[in-house]
Design a protein around this nucleic acid. Structure first.
Lengths: 249, 249
DNA sequence: CGAGGATTTGAGTTGTATCAAGAGTCGTGG
DNA sequence: CCACGACTCTTGATACAACTCAAATCCTCG
């Protein structure tokens, strides 16, 4: 960890650095020289709009946002974004963004000029590698989401996403403690590809079973291990017997 | 384009370079010095197994594979992989892969030592940036898949994925010409999160409507623009009126 | 205190899965 | 060369998961 600076380091920078595994002190210094513009975004306001050109990477310093993509009048939330998450690396700088990012709560965002970032990445290999790592983590999360949407029932999806939200706030997780949850069921529905009504029924069911306590702003998991086993995909055989399994030796 | 080499360049390398936008001649030279091991993988054999350590990036030079993830006895195909696709960048080299890659047809694979690749990336910023771009493209494809699974009906999913498979082989696409299609309906089902039976019904419907000609090994799109409009998400209002739309000015 | 959203519940409908079974296809070995 | 086994593809019947519509609270914020 190179980011324990005794100097004043912009929080957006230290968040960015935290996602990069092997920064040399020089790399870290280079990062610190980047100019960070801080913006405060109200609930419901846009941090990034599909189709609009943008020059700056955005780092969420505080607050929650949702990353979504729309097609006609429907929208699919790709992922929730919490403090520490980064948006803006997925394009090559030429293309316009395909996705929207909207604040779920008031947000503080640090913005860094992409050109400058790429310029210093040219000289700091650790930074270039770090950027790859950040995108790779986003890819891993996207794959989780694919698994949720493709293979899990509504009940399982809700369990899985609640666990995820819980774990992201409590990396060293202790059970039974509340975590922030500024997520309406409408948002959950758009995230999980379900109707609001059906999400509500699953939430109700989880409550009746005593697995969660969910208020407007807080979430408590009463039995995370039970929920984990629910989220662990159910026993079924949609995939069938041994499709294409040509007896690997 | 730096990869029009007059020297002998390993096809795996030129494929890799093609995915990197701004390679300097030096960067390209550095890439060419990498040692590439070519392997030939039979249909149904594994190119990469979840949980097994691996040291080498894999580049599909020829053939089709599927990239999937399993949980218990279910499997979700994350994406199909065609010639030019790359696997192995998503981990930091420390972690084990979470995903499987299996050959759908006999494949030729070029393998490059990840450590060596990362070593030269440290000195060739264009390469480091290129790696980010490759992962970013994978992320964009994953987001497409999320949209398919989260928002589209079975009929739309099949349309969308057939269009996708078609376009990937015919980037400068002409209609009415057949493209390779070594994909069973069982595989389609695992990709689209549907049952085989239901996939079959959608394929039958597309045939009856004269939109596709689909044989065991080939696909013809008879009216790609009609299919595109089908795949463009259906008119519905699952998302609701203006959730969280705090009248953006 | 009014309004717009969020949550909750009910009733009915539709999409998709499961089960089952027959026909077509392919590769392999006798 | 044919027969066998193992996948595929196809179709029908039925069951269940999830959606739609509708309406009644309940919040929350202006």
């Amino acid at each position: 960890m190179t980011d324990a600076g005794r100097f004043h380091v912009d929080p957006a920078i230290s968040i960015l650095a935290a996602g990069m595994p092997s920064l040399s002190p020089d790399d870290f210094q280079a990062l610190c020289h980047l100019r960070v513009v801080h913006r405060f975004i109200g609930r419901g306001r846009s941090l990034l709009s599909a189709g609009e050109p943008f020059q700056r990477l955005r780092i969420i310093v505080k607050g929650w946002a949702m990353h979504s993509r729309r097609h006609h009048d429907r929208r699919q939330i790709l992922d929730l974004m919490l403090a520490g998450d980064v948006i803006g690396l997925e394009t090559d700088g030429q293309h316009l963004p395909l996705t929207d990012v909207e604040a779920l709560t008031p947000c503080e965002v640090g913005e860094i000029d992409l050109k400058s970032l790429h310029r210093i990445a040219l000289r700091s290999p650790g930074i270039a590698g770090g950027l790859t790592r950040i995108v790779a983590k986003q890819l891993a999360r996207a794959e989780d989401q694919i698994l949720r949407l493709g293979q899990m029932t509504a009940y399982e999806r809700v369990c899985h996403v609640l666990l995820d939200i819980h774990d992201r706030q409590r990396a060293a997780g202790i059970d039974g403690k509340p975590v922030d949850f500024p997520v309406t069921q409408t948002v959950l529905a758009a995230l999980l590809g379900l109707s609001v009504v059906h999400v509500n029924r699953q939430v109700m069911r989880l409550r009746e079973e005593g697995l969660i306590v969910l208020t407007r702003q807080q979430l408590v998991l009463c039995a995370p291990e039970r929920m984990a086993s629910i989220a662990g995909i159910r026993p079924l055989d949609r995939g069938g017997s041994s499709t294409l399994a040509v007896a690997a030796e």
